[in-house]
Amino acid sequence: MSEPITALGGASADNGIATLAEAPLQGMITLRGDLTASAVKKAATSASGTAMPDQGMVTAEKDRALCWMSPDELLLLCPYDAVGETLDRMHKVLAKSHALAVNVSDARAMFRVSGVGGREVMAKLSPVDLAPDQFTPGMFRRTRLAQVPAAFWMPEEEAFHIICFRSQAQYVFDLLTVAAQPGSSVGVYQE
C-alpha cells in the first residue's frame, strides 16, 4: 500500500501576521443531488451526525461537518480513515436516488490560518467582506483566493480553514505566505 501524504507535507509558517499551517489529511465527500429530497438529506445528516446546513452555512459536530456548496451540492468532512465506511453508508441510503457521493479527499488540500491577523490575510486575497460582523463562524464561502477557486469558513473566532484543489496547494500556500508576511499588517479590522 502506498502511504497517503498531504500536498505539501505539512508546510507551516508562523513568523508573519498570522499563523499558517497545512492541515493534516482530511476526509472529504462531495454529495450532489436534490438537497430537498428526503433520501439525500438523510444520507447527509446520518453520515455527518449534523443537521442540514442553511444556504451559505456549515454545520459541525465533533470531527464531522456539512458544508453548503450550492443548491445541489454539499461537502461532507470526516476523518480521512473513515471515508470508505461513511461512503458505503451513504450509498446504501442513496441507492434509489438520483444523487452522487464521491470521495474527493485526495483531490483537495486544506490550510488553517489563525491569529489576530487572519481576517486581514483572507481579506487581502478574496473579494469577500470579512468585517467581523459580516463574516462569522458558521458561515461557509466559496470564492477565489487571488487567481484560484477556494472555499473557507471559520471553525472558531480568529481561525480560518481553507479548501483548495490539491494541484494548486503550493500556489495557495505561497499566496498566504505573502499576504501574512511580517510587517504587512494594515490594521483595517482593529478598533
Partner: peptide, 12 residues
C-alpha cells in the same frame, strides 16, 4: 440569485 452571495465581478 442562486446562492445569495454579493461580490464584485471578479468572482463571476
Amino acid at each position: 440569485p442562486v446562492c445569495g452571495v454579493t461580490a464584485e465581478e471578479t468572482e463571476f
